[in-house]
Simulated assay, not measured.
Amino acid sequence: MTENLGVIGGKSARRTGVERVVNAPLPTVYGPFQAIGYLDHDRGEEQVALVHGDLGADRVLTRLHSECLTGDAFGSRHCECGDQLASAMRAVTAEGAGVVVYLRGHEGRGIGLLGKLRAMALQAEGLDTVEANVALGLPVDARDYGVAAGILQDLGVRSVRLMSNNPRKREALVRHGIQVDEQVPLLIPPCENNITYLRTKRERLDHHLPHLDAVAHWS
């Protein structure tokens, strides 16, 4: 989804929307992907869609993955993000086709890396993830999924099977014109370090995490 406003009144207008910039093969431990790079002109972010196989247009297995440096790269057990990313990439290759849209600028539900680390410090003192953001004067969730919808539209995707436990992702895609045929759970076994965080996501952020009911021995 690219819009170039060209020249208006003798001045170059700012480009808006999502521009596809590059398509490169990306062999991974999960299987082969095409890394399709985009520039979000509205926010200045560089984004990437990892595409495996022939997507087609309908019921495409899809993950919208919010950037999480601590979980995705450092293996943090504070959250389940790294495991969710790995599970999504495995699921896409097992399916034979699908896409993982990796959303930069979503660190800490949109508050940035330093904001997230400050919130984590407060959580270590006893606040939950929602209370910590509020205490810092930051939004509880500042993410926007318009760029994800634009990327899917550029890829020719009309409807998805969305790998997510977050109903707000589904609502956002529908609002931006992408049909969600099914919401596929992406449930990661909790550990002692993240059980409180996951329970907060379920109780205060409406994430569908029924598997937490079986975990009763951690406070």
Results as ranks from 00 to 15, higher is better:
residue 22 V to C: 14
residue 173 L to Q: 04
residue 81 C to N: 12
residue 34 Q to G: 07
residue 13 A to C: 11
residue 132 A to I: 00
residue 80 E to M: 01
residue 154 D to W: 12
residue 194 N to I: 08
residue 9 G to V: 06
residue 212 L to M: 15
residue 37 G to F: 15
residue 76 S to W: 08
residue 113 L to K: 09
residue 113 L to R: 09
residue 142 A to M: 07
residue 149 A to M: 12
residue 197 Y to F: 15
residue 95 E to G: 00
residue 34 Q to L: 08
residue 82 G to R: 01
residue 211 H to E: 15
residue 158 R to H: 08
residue 106 H to V: 05
residue 177 G to K: 03
residue 24 A to L: 12
residue 83 D to V: 02
residue 125 E to T: 11
residue 51 V to G: 02
residue 156 G to R: 01
residue 178 I to L: 08
residue 214 A to C: 14
residue 75 G to N: 04
residue 8 I to C: 06
residue 66 S to M: 11
residue 119 A to S: 08
residue 108 G to Q: 06
residue 58 D to Q: 12
residue 54 D to Q: 07
residue 191 C to I: 02
residue 6 G to P: 03
residue 136 L to R: 03
residue 9 G to N: 14
residue 153 Q to N: 11
residue 162 L to H: 04
residue 187 L to C: 05
residue 144 D to R: 09
residue 22 V to F: 13
residue 111 I to A: 06
residue 130 V to A: 04
residue 214 A to P: 14
residue 218 W to G: 07
residue 36 I to F: 04
residue 88 A to Y: 00
residue 1 M to F: 09
residue 6 G to S: 09
residue 15 R to S: 14
residue 179 Q to T: 08
residue 118 R to Q: 10
residue 27 P to C: 08
residue 2 T to S: 00
residue 182 E to C: 10
residue 37 G to E: 09
residue 84 Q to Y: 07
residue 115 G to H: 01
residue 110 G to W: 03
residue 156 G to Q: 14
residue 168 R to Y: 09
residue 170 R to E: 06
residue 17 G to T: 07
residue 166 N to W: 11
residue 17 G to L: 10
residue 70 T to W: 10
residue 13 A to K: 11
residue 218 W to D: 13
residue 172 A to H: 05
residue 10 G to H: 06
